[in-house]
C-alpha cells in the first residue's frame, strides 16, 4: 500500500519578506496568489476556485470542536523503528524530520472534545507526517482512543487523511489494520457509535480497515477515496480512469458513504449526526 505523493503540495508557499510563516501562498489549481490569513479564515479552501488544501490535525480539530473543549489523549509509547529500516534515508531520520516539520510526535492526534455540546472522542490523522501513514504508533493510538471512547461511552470520530500503511514498518504496519479493527469491535461491544470522516486522501490500509467500518460515514468535498491510488490502477491495469473516479461524489454514487459535505459545513453536519447518534446531549 504505497504512500501517495502526487498532489501532496496543493499550494506553493511564497516567501515575501522573510518571516517564518510566508504571507502569501499560490493555489496550484488556479494560480491565484492568496493572502495566507484569508486562506486560514476560509479553512484552507481556495477563495477563488474552491480547491481544498490540507489541514494539519490541529487545524482540523479547531475547525470541528467547540472552542476550548479539546483535551488531548497521550500517545501510548511504542518501540520505534521495529525493523531498523533503511532505504535512501534511514527511517529514524524520516521520523525526526517529520517531527520537526509538524511539531507532532506521530501522524495521529487524539483526544476528547465537544461538538455542538456533544461529548466525543476523536482521532485525526495528519497527512504531513509521512503521508498520514499507519505504523505501530498510529495503530496503537487509534486502539487506545477507541478503548477510551468505549469506556467513557463517548461517540468515536475518526478523521482520515492517509496514504495507507507505513511501508517502513513492514508486516507490523499490515497488522495494525487488524489492531484498529479489534478496537472497532470494542466500540461495538459497548454499543458506542462510530463516525468516520473521509478526506483527501483516504486510501490503502487505513481505508481497508477502520476507515470503512463506521456506523455513519461522511466524505469531505475534495476527498480522494479508494483502496489503490489512481496511478497504481492505471499502471497495473492500463485502464482509463473515468472522470470523477474516487472522488467524494463517486463514493456517494457507489453507495460507500452517507453524505458528501463541504469543509465549511462539516461541523454543522456532525452536530446533526450526533443529535441522532449520541446517547446523551
Amino acid at each position: 500500500m504505497p504512500i501517495r505523493k502526487d498532489r501532496r503540495e496543493r499550494y506553493v508557499e511564497v516567501e515575501v519578506s522573510g518571516p517564518r510563516e510566508p504571507l502569501w501562498v499560490r493555489c496550484e489549481a488556479c494560480g491565484e496568489l492568496i493572502f495566507r490569513r484569508k486562506l486560514q479564515e476560509n479553512q484552507y479552501v481556495c477563495p477563488r476556485c474552491g480547491a481544498y488544501f490540507f489541514l494539519s490535525a490541529q487545524e482540523r480539530i479547531a475547525s470541528l470542536v467547540d472552542p476550548e473543549s479539546f483535551q488531548e489523549l497521550p500517545l501510548p509509547p511504542v518501540p520505534e523503528d521495529p525493523l531498523g529500516f533503511v532505504d535512501q534515508t534511514p527511517y529514524r531520520e524520516r521520523l525526526a524530520r517529520a517531527r520537526q516539520e509538524t511539531g507532532l510526535r506521530e501522524a495521529l492526534v487524539a483526544g476528547v472534545a465537544r461538538i455542538a455540546g456533544y461529548g466525543v472522542t476523536l482521532a485525526v490523522l495528519d497527512f504531513r507526517f509521512i503521508g498520514g501513514s499507519m505504523g505501530v504508533a498510529v495503530g496503537e493510538a487509534l486502539y487506545a482512543a477507541q478503548a477510551h471512547a468505549a469506556q467513557a461511552r463517548l461517540p468515536f470520530l475518526f478523521v482520515v487523511s492517509s496514504g495507507g500503511a507505513r511501508v517502513q514498518e513492514g508486516v507490523l504496519s499490515l497488522l495494525q489494520m487488524v489492531k484498529v479493527v479489534a478496537g472497532r469491535e470494542l466500540l461495538a461491544q459497548h454499543g458506542v457509535p462510530y463516525i468516520a470522516v473521509l478526506t483527501y486522501p483516504s486510501t490503502g490500509g487505513v481505508l481497508a480497515s477502520l476507515g470503512s467500518l463506521a456506523d455513519v460515514t461522511l466524505a469531505e468535498e475534495g476527498a480522494l477515496i479508494g483502496f489503490a491510488g489512481p496511478r497504481v490502477i492505471e499502471q497495473t491495469t492500463g485502464e482509463r480512469l473515468p472522470p470523477g473516479f474516487q472522488t467524494a461524489r463517486f463514493a456517494l454514487e457507489h453507495g460507500q458513504v452517507d453524505q458528501v459535505v463541504p469543509r465549511a459545513k462539516l461541523r454543522e453536519e456532525l452536530a446533526q449526526v450526533l443529535r441522532v447518534l449520541a446517547e446523551r446531549p
Binding site: L213, G226, A228, I233
Partner: peptide, 22 residues
C-alpha cells in the same frame, strides 16, 4: 495483493477487505 482496478473500487474493495478482517 488485491486487484487494483476501476471495478474493484466501484464495488468497494477496501470495504470488503475491512469487512473480512472484522
Amino acid at each position: 495483493g488485491a486487484y487494483p482496478g476501476v471495478q474493484a473500487e466501484a464495488h468497494n474493495v477496501a470495504g470488503a477487505i475491512a469487512a473480512c478482517i472484522w
